[in-house]
Design a protein around this nucleic acid. Structure first.
Length: 391
DNA sequence: GATCCACGGGAATACACGGATG
DNA sequence: CATCCGTGTATTCCCGTGGATC
């Protein structure tokens, strides 16, 4: 836990003991600074990155692993630290004045969930490498590429770019990624991260290394849950037995396990309890669909799509009976300033990429093509809380 | 004035069904 | 009986436009 979180936690204590001390520590979309029990994975990744400590670039690589196995957690934590290394040695931005340690390459982490266009990709890379903020408007994609070329061609060490969530629906696939990197100079090394097995993607034709992350073992997952609970919840709020139960159910997915305690904690909190009960855990497990979609993906959607989902999770079953009924119900909310056509298109688009799922309704009331309804692929309580917190 | 991209709106296409047709 | 057609609804696809920002 960092210092900010500690302070926040103390400040929130004023109203007496509270079950949820800090939602951020519990959030399944937040990665903590030092993921526990992932030593071996860190070591393998550091083995691959070893050349950077001599001021050289590693070859391209691909990291794969199942949903919730901690790929993002490992890479974001490691890159956060490596960035400090390159700031210390002033590699890209200025010429190094230090003789002691060799200049280190720059490090950039790009999350393709939030980077939905060519423009956005180059923008993120450039913006991370230079001090002054890069404008998001009034500048063309071509200009961004030119600036990147100028910057990198003048750099001795180059840059390592981690590209997370490759190959998810609506995000860049392998081919698109290769194209993006074709627009950059050659002193760039990339580290792609995705769920697809290495032998199922053409990315590995461009890589020398591929690393596979295994899903969490049961005991490791229990430890993760207990750690998070100790940071985000009141003392003793989650007992070992409950953590084991959630870990068993989650079957190796840290995302689903964290989503479940998040939901259980929110439920207990609303009931003014000071610890989780068995029924909180049961309810949390029941409302978390499996397989689920990553809440990170849901929260990376454009604002208005999230708004549509936010209204969707509060609808009663009658309003969810058909896509048309759902469209009408959502469209009539005062907070929603979208045309019915757009709301409906959003629902279909989100079904297309697995945020929600379309279910054919069985009621065959005669005329026309039978309607379908949408069902959530994520725990509604978790989304509701996370959405409201970010507003 | 330049640029990007989210929206709107509608056209095109798919599907289900029943009745007509060969 | 198999196939086609018309109607009504659901779903997908496409592209111009305008808001926001620099």
């Amino acid at each position: 836990m960092d210092i900010d979180a500690r302070i926040k936690r103390r400040r929130r204590r004023d109203g007496g003991p509270r079950l949820v001390q800090d939602y951020e520590s519990l959030s399944p979309v937040a990665h903590i600074d030092e993921p526990s029990d992932r030593g071996p994975a860190f070591e393998r990744l550091l083995d691959h990155l070893d050349p950077v400590f001599d001021g050289r670039l590693p070859p391209n690589a691909y990291i794969s692993g199942p949903f919730g196995s901690g790929k993002s957690a490992i890479v974001t934590a490691l890159f956060a630290h490596l960035k400090q290394l390159s700031t210390e040695t002033q590699s890209v931005i200025h010429t190094s004045t230090r003789a002691a340690s060799p200049p280190s390459p720059g490090f950039v982490y790009v999350d393709m969930r939030e980077t939905t266009s060519e423009f956005a990709f180059y923008h993120t890379v450039l913006d991370t490498l230079v001090e002054d903020p890069v404008p998001e408007h009034g500048i063309s994609t071509e200009q961004l590429r030119t600036r990147l070329h100028d910057l990198l061609n003048g750099s001795r060490t180059g840059v390592v770019i981690a590209v997370d969530h490759v190959g998810e629906p609506n995000s860049a696939d392998a081919e698109a990624l290769i194209d993006l990197f074709a627009g950059l100079p050659s002193n760039v090394s990339w580290l792609a991260i995705g769920r697809t097995d290495p032998d199922q993607t053409l990315l590995t034709e461009y890589t020398a290394t591929s690393l596979q992350i295994q899903c969490y073992r049961r005991q490791m997952l229990v430890d993760v849950l207990m750690t998070r609970a100790s940071e985000g919840l009141a003392q003793q709020a989650l007992n070992h037995e409950q953590a084991r139960r959630i870990a068993d159910w989650a079957d190796g997915s840290a995302h689903d396990a964290l989503a479940a305690i998040f939901v259980a904690a929110d439920r207990a909190n609303r009931a003014d309890q000071n610890r989780l009960t068995e029924s909180d855990v049961t309810a949390a497990i029941e409302e978390t669909p499996r397989p689920s979609v990553s809440l990170g993906r849901v929260l990376a959607l454009p604002n208005n799509k999230q708004l549509v989902l936010r209204e969707l999770v509060d609808l009663d079953s009658e309003d969810r009976a058909t896509v048309t009924a759902t469209t009408k119900a959502i469209g009539s909310k005062p907070s929603v300033d979208l045309s019915p056509g757009t709301v409906k298109r959003y629902l279909y688009e989100m079904a297309e990429v697995g945020i929600v799922e379309r279910i054919q309704s069985d009621s065959k009331n005669g005329k026309g093509r039978p309607p379908s309804r949408v069902e959530l692929r994520f725990p509604p309580t978790a989304f509701r809380r996370l959405y409201d917190l970010q507003q």
